[in-house]
């Protein structure tokens, strides 16, 4: 089980949170002008990386607020959490995780 740092409440147990997938997907400005290809890509196609994943979480059983996290999907190590609207954290100095 993971320990997650809620940007508002601090370190809490993962069972208090709900994961909501890839972060930073912007809704298209003019949905009516998109064709099937573009709309399907926006709704259904995801990065699903093996490595750093920028993702959304909700503190469902806590403050019920949304935030973003950067997690390595190989090790589940959470490198950073940050509030919506804050820019993506710079992780270029981080050592890459060694999978156990």
């Amino acid at each position: 089980m993971l320990l997650i740092e809620c940007p508002w409440c601090g370190l809490r147990d993962q069972s208090e949170f709900t994961a909501h997938g890839e972060a930073h997907i912007a809704r298209p400005d003019t949905p009516g002008e998109l064709d099937e290809q573009e709309w399907g890509d926006y709704v259904f196609f995801r990065k699903n990386p093996k490595g750093l994943h920028y993702e959304r979480w909700v503190h469902s059983h806590g403050c019920r607020r949304w935030f973003n996290a950067v997690r390595d999907t190989v090790t589940d190590h959470i490198h950073a959490t940050y509030r919506p609207g804050d820019g993506q954290p710079d992780l270029s100095d981080e050592e890459p995780d060694q999978p156990s």
């Binding site: 709900t18 994961a19 993702e55 999907t73 190989v74 589940d76 999978p99």
Partner: peptide, 8 residues
Amino acid sequence: SDAYLSYS
């Protein structure tokens, strides 16, 4: 299944 994306 677990609710978060992972390859672990």
